[in-house]
Write a protein that binds this DNA or RNA. Structure first.
Lengths: 335, 335
DNA sequence: CTGAAAGCGCTTACAG
DNA sequence: CTGAAAGCGCTTACAG
């Protein structure tokens, strides 16, 4: 009924408490006989080591703080699931923090540190430099996932968003679109800025200028409104690139349901992320795939391979264009 | 650089270590002068109490184990977000465990207990009775969220799934549908069973029999296949009730894209959950709303109000029919 | 109100 | 290989 400790097991098995500890410490030296005796007693009594007590000594809580926001964009549940799985295989577990508003992050991270986490992953949230110092001081590695930050003070893992934007520009131009529009996400976000920059640079190089631009802020309802504005203009775009899939889904709804236009016949749509929804028959969205699994693996590598005072690394993974019905490849029609 | 402890603060402020502890323990008796002196020193040195050490003594880790699976159904990210927010306001944080396959649960829960969590929430996963004993023995409260289990050994919070199923039956019959089909979820799940039972009982009472039945297992691709079968039959249903929204989205894709049928003119569709996606213009899904926020609040109530050896409680919250385009109310047509 | 001391459940040098 | 002892960073009776 009461919690059973290493001492209880030791008494029961007639050995010392240190022996019990050794049996449950990988790599410690114990004889086969001792091991057997202790394990049997442990099972008998239902003993399992208390991780908290262990952490106090080893200085490692086997816990990683994961700060995430914006779960209604399906990309983040996907990252979370992968992260959780991979951490577990390494003997770690995520302590979750869902940050609603940007202002929260300071407070949230302070709370995380109180739990003595062994590292922090920030997905889709940026970080103030005040926290930088605090994590640095505590010697806790921090990795930004799907974000970078101005001063480059932290490790980060992203897709090569500029190249991704360029892939889309080339796809649209190659397929003969003449009135190409862009719908921006939250303009403070590095993902948004890089995607747009890569997109516009490639357009410029090909001598094509943007037909129109709106801002959806990565928000569903704001995107709907921005698309309405675009479609009510004198000349409509013949293709729209949305800065992420989530916004593209909002746009598709407005285009098909509110304006009765056909995709891709009347207007083509491209997104960014390749979330599972993008492949659904209702959308079949042409998009740029972010390699979620590789992103998570790189994140963990940076977290665990961490040398003291190592220079922050910025990993950029290759983007891949996924062509589907919403903006198909027109055969031969290139140029 | 090194971690700063209560002892460091005590030395710096010229007081005892117990005094420092008291300043950071709500409700402990300290003079204003002492408090000021210690707090200043703490800020100066960047001190924050180590939660692990505190937990070891108080026996409370301020951590709740949250086991969840099936994040591709948007209902679960939604629950997770609410849960995380509410826990935080109470000074707790979720330790996340994403259970991929059902077999995992035993192992996962054992790991959770090692972290000395103060409670466990199981969302969308069932629990073996072996674990029941272990949690009981450890005195850790367990709440099932959106599930019940045969033997009723645990607290649970669900929507009244039977009434929800009945609401849908009445809506369909009242609107004159004659060939009503049901697409079942994972048949082991209590949610699936209850929804179907409420639905069929109400149909039976109104003297209407089911046109056809398929099984989608709560899985997107299996649902698509099941819907194809249904639509290829000699007589097609004129309305389909899917056991959850996630499956309904798969069905809508097949109906509209693969068979070129119109919703609701050719065939009507109803789901269950009312996830955010259901309101999207591409779907506008008629469904039964699960009151996610109330579910989470009740879950926390059961978790924290827990008396020793209290009888398991089974909370069922009211279901509400949300009528949208995919199966609208036909005015006046109600028999 | 304050401090000295015991102790939470472990790990880890240190002897033997 | 094994045990006795110190100690991780706190909280909490116990005196004063």
């Amino acid at each position: 009924m009461a919690k059973v400790t290493a001492n209880d097991v030791a008494r029961y098995a007639g050995v010392s408490q240190s022996a019990v500890s050794r049996v449950f410490t990988p790599g410690a030296s114990v004889s086969k006989a001792m091991e057997k005796r202790v394990r049997e007693a442990a099972i008998e009594l239902g003993y399992r080591p208390n991780i908290l007590a262990r952490s106090l000594i080893t200085g490692s809580s086997r816990t990683i703080g994961v700060v995430i926001s914006y779960l209604n964009n399906q990309f983040y549940p996907e990252l979370l699931e992968l992260l959780s799985r991979e951490l577990r295989t390494r003997g770690y577990h995520p302590l979750m923090f869902i940050a609603s508003n940007q202002d929260d992050i300071e407070e949230v991270t302070a709370e995380i540190l109180d739990y003595q986490v062994d590292g922090v992953v920030l997905a889709s949230v940026s970080m103030s430099s005040g926290l930088a110092d605090r994590c640095q001081a505590a010697g806790i590695p921090v990795v930004l996932l799907n974000r970078t930050v101005e001063n480059n003070a932290f490790h980060s893992v992203t897709t090569d968003n500029r190249s991704g934007g360029a892939l889309i520009a080339h796809h649209l131009i190659d397929n003969g679109f003449k009135r190409i529009a862009f719908l921006a996400g939250w303009e403070q976000a590095s993902t948004q800025r890089e995607r747009e920059r890569g997109f516009l640079d490639a357009m410029h190089k090909r001598g094509v200028s943007l037909h129109s631009r709106g801002v959806g802020n990565f928000d569903f309802d704001m995107t709907k409104e921005a698309v309405r504005q675009m479609l009510q203009a004198d000349t409509r775009p013949d293709a729209i690139f949305f800065a992420n899939d989530h916004m593209a889904f909002a746009g598709i709804g407005v285009i098909e349901r509110e304006f009765g236009l056909r995709i891709p016949e009347d207007i083509s749509v491209v997104g960014f992320d390749d979330v599972p929804l993008a492949a659904w028959p209702s959308f079949e969205l042409t998009t740029v795939r972010q390699p979620a699994e590789s992103m998570v693996l790189e994140t963990l590598r940076l977290l665990f391979d961490n040398q003291q005072n190592q220079e922050p690394q910025h990993i950029e993974l290759a983007a891949e264009l996924i062509v589907r019905r919403s903006c198909p490849q027109r055969s031969g029609d290139t140029e």
